[in-house]
Computed example of a mutant assay.
Amino acid sequence: MKMLDFTVNLNSLGFEAGLSEDEKEMLFLRNRSAGLTVSGCAHAVFVCELVGLLRKKLNSENGCTAKTHLSVGILGGGHVGKQLAKLLLQASNLKPCDINISTKRPETLGDISNIGVECYYDNIRLAKQADLLFLCVLPSHLPRVCSDIRCHLSSDCLVYSFTSAVPLKRLAMLLDHSFIIKPQYEFVACDDVTSIWLLHNQVSAALKHKEVLSASLPLSMKGGLFLDQRWVSAVLYSLLNTCTAEKQGSGNTLRLLNGLFETGVSTNTFTYRSFMNSPGASDPNKPDDLFPWINLVDAQTKDTPLADLVRRNKGLRDCISVMYYSAFSSLAEG
């Protein structure tokens, strides 16, 4: 006879049952922390997917020398680093051999290394081979880590930082590198800073829930969190830089990006003036000229033509949202 477990869902045995009233008032911090982890990892994976999609388009171009695969490095094997690695493996098109993790204690990542992800403690090795490098280290460790890797990053290696306590300009100075994306999250007043973020303690499991995935949507976050919308324009500028690094002329770059973000309203969402508001190294009338390299620090700290386009163009925003949901479709199927 099957025995029933009468303790399941019993409130008196729940986490909150043993808390004082003062402690219960601080529970929103637990929700926020979980929300930052879930949303931060999801947004990072989305960037990885966009870069991967663009690389595929570049590789289909005649004479393009883009690598056939994306080499991803995760620097830091703590809670965020582990969650990010697991989400990349479950939601992205990356293979385990495309991901490397550098951490002081690689022996703690047995469940990840056993499926083919290389885990070691060598920050310089990681930086040298990464096309996309995720920084998942504590603020107190960042100066030493940056000192280790700053001379070993290629100019077109995109660095994505989870270390929120260190300002972007400070990070750029520590790394001597401007090809950096650092999402800026803010907490907003919310009548229901719900426990949706706490549905599961694993990010990939949480994102299987439609309400969690919807709450993490970059352009309209819910659940008490808000993402600075300049993150979106910085991501798009990073794709522009990727084309420039591959020596794609401005005309071909615009064609590739318009093909990537097909809004259904217009096939010419992006024009030269979408990215540039002043004369640069490229000329809209000379499609073989390269776009100038865009400093992503400026793109995230100043107003840009691209940020204005994202605000004005509903078709582009809708397209980004559809692509975001699509990036995690494999989780729903699982």
Rank of each mutant, 00 (worst) to 15 (best):
N31F: 13
W197D: 04
H69M: 01
L240Q: 07
G35F: 07
K86T: 11
V47G: 07
F6D: 01
L240E: 02
A332Y: 13
S154T: 03
K208M: 15
I101E: 01
R144C: 12
K128Q: 15
K222S: 11
K222Y: 10
L240G: 05
T37G: 01
N258Y: 10
K247T: 00
L94Y: 03
G77P: 11
E186M: 09
L175Q: 11
L309W: 12
I196P: 02
L207M: 11
A85F: 14
L153V: 04
E107C: 05
L142Y: 10
C64V: 04
L158M: 11
S155C: 09
A206P: 13
S266D: 15
T65L: 12
K210G: 00
Q129G: 09
E118A: 12
V159M: 07
L142M: 14
D5T: 15
L132G: 01
S274D: 08
L132R: 02
E118G: 03
L236R: 04
L89Y: 13
S321Y: 01
V297W: 07
P139C: 08
L13Q: 06
G224T: 00
F28K: 05
C157V: 06
H69T: 13
N258G: 14
Q83Y: 05
Y160P: 03
I181C: 05
F46K: 06
L36W: 03
S329G: 10
L306Q: 02
S178L: 09
N201V: 00
A66L: 08
S233W: 09
P183Q: 01
S154H: 14
H79N: 14
M3R: 10
E16Q: 06
C190Q: 05
L132S: 02
F187H: 00
L19G: 00
T68V: 12
P305W: 15
G63T: 05
S39Q: 04
E49A: 15
E186N: 09
L50W: 13
F187L: 11
R55F: 04
P292N: 00
M1Y: 06
L240M: 14
E16S: 09
E25G: 03
N252D: 06
R105Y: 15
L133E: 07
C243W: 11
D176A: 11
A307N: 07
F162S: 08
E262S: 15
L58G: 02
K314Y: 02
S92P: 13
G52W: 14
S233Q: 14
P96E: 02
A206G: 04
T301Y: 08
N241H: 09
S250G: 00
T263G: 14
S282T: 09
S60I: 03
G35K: 04
G116D: 09
G116M: 06
A205Q: 14
L296T: 00
Y120D: 07
T103Y: 05
E186K: 10
S12A: 14
I294L: 12
R144G: 10
F162P: 03
S195D: 08
E61L: 15
L50E: 07
H209T: 06
G223I: 01
R125D: 07
G14N: 09
